[in-house]
Amino acid sequence: MLQCHVKGCNDPSLSFPLQLKDVELEQVETEQNDDLLANLLQKIDWNALQMTATELGLASLPETIPDDPDSDEAFMIKLHEVLMEMNITQGKMECRGCGHVYPIKDGIPNMLLAEHEI
């Protein structure tokens, strides 16, 4: 969901997804809702999620969405864990294009830029 928007940094292949670094993760168990996950699958950028999850060393998600995800129980469990249960409490997100760093503090990413960067 979050991409670099520094002025002049507009190579779409590099400005998204941001690379997570020095992260502290916590897992909060929540109830799995398959309808919600199916809805989310239509709205997220799968490649970005897959790449980010792999970089974080989380449950390995397949490179493409299975043909019939709703009936793939193991896949839905993994997806729930990565999307709904993993919280990043501290860390930073770095743009692969311009190197701008967006900090994450107490679970809240800060996407604000200084005036000269807008």
Binding site: M1, L2, V28, T30, M84, G107, I108, P109, N110, M111, L112
Partner: peptide, 8 residues
């Protein structure tokens, strides 16, 4: 489980 983002 609400996510927050600081953004303009």
């Amino acid at each position: 489980p609400m996510d927050l983002v600081r953004s303009d």
